[in-house]
Design a protein around this nucleic acid. Structure first.
Length: 272
DNA sequence: AGTGCGACCCGAACGC
DNA sequence: TGCGTTCGGGTCGCAC
């Protein structure tokens, strides 16, 4: 489940592997990953090269001279670098072949990921990017920003933290961890959070994401011919998937409930 | 407008 | 052992 830290790690890793190589072929084995026109996708990217990889929230942005290729990994999307002659593995849906006979392969067991090819001049009009809120590490993310965004929101804070238009890049795991850090009950109405709680949410998301990016950076699995990226921040988790285990702080058993249909873990004693 | 929920997927975990 | 069923996870789109 790639969240912002893993997307950042993928970005950094791929940048060292695929920039400035001419794309000579694109094979697409599952069309629905690509939201824009599939024929145009191939036609427009062939003979181009990726000149940079950027990121906004959980979106990866591959830059060419004329286009941006937007890629969202959703839950299980991964990229691998392999030689051209290696067999296509199960769940490899999109394969870019470069002129040096290496390939960039998009692998996604659940087929939930999405790609979108847009002309560069359209970048300011693409809603999936323009609607993103501030990132956890953005210095403009502060308690007043959150108080304003939480105003009139009757939804549980846990649900609101997953809203990418408020904080961009927090997923289910981090939302659980941030609320534990901030001592906030996941069911509390967002509009009822105090300034102090918002400050803790800012501090918590900042520290947790920073740590996760650091972990992501140390857990890249490299192979001679392929490269996958997985995060190991699970070692640092305090509540996520810890149902029944004693709370890190007070030893009370961690609870698991559904909030807005999403599994939510918290300490009933620390997060009243 | 804000909110709630099913759909999209498929492997793992579970029940029998 | 081998079936069938349930669940999860991010985001979108539709219904209310």
């Amino acid at each position: 489940m790639p969240e912002i830290a893993e997307v950042e790690t993928v970005r950094n890793t791929l940048k060292q592997k695929i920039l400035h190589k001419k794309i000579k072929k694109i094979d697409i084995y599952y069309d629905k990953i690509i939201e824009s026109n599939v024929d145009d996708f191939k036609k427009n990217l062939i003979n181009e090269e990726f000149i940079d990889i950027k990121r906004k929230g959980k979106w990866l942005i591959f830059e060419t001279n004329k286009y941006y290729l937007l890629s969202h990994l959703r839950m299980e999307g991964k990229y691998f670098i392999k030689d051209q002659d290696e067999e296509i593995a199960k769940h490899e849906h999109i394969v870019f072949t470069f002129n040096d006979d290496t390939t960039l392969r998009y692998h996604d067991t659940r087929k939930f990921g999405r790609m979108n090819l847009i002309k560069k001049e359209e970048i300011d009009k693409v809603e999936c990017l323009t609607k993103q809120g501030l990132e956890p590490l953005d210095k403009d993310l502060n308690a007043n920003y959150l108080l304003d965004k939480f105003k009139n929101k009757k939804l549980p804070i846990k649900t609101v933290l997953l809203d990418q238009t408020i904080i961009s890049g927090l997923g289910n795991i981090y939302a659980n961890e941030v609320l534990f850090y901030a001592h906030v009950n996941p069911l509390k109405e967002a509009q009822k959070l105090t300034k102090e709680e918002c400050e803790l949410i800012v501090k918590g998301s900042n520290e947790i994401i920073k740590e996760a990016i650091k972990m992501g950076g140390t857990t890249i699995k490299s192979y001679t011919s392929s490269l996958g990226v997985t995060g190991r921040f699970q070692q640092k988790l305090k509540v996520h998937k810890k149902e029944g285990e004693p709370c890190f702080r007070c030893k009370t058993p961690i609870k698991n409930i559904k909030v807005g249909g999403r599994s939510t873990y918290y300490c009933p004693n620390c997060q009243k």
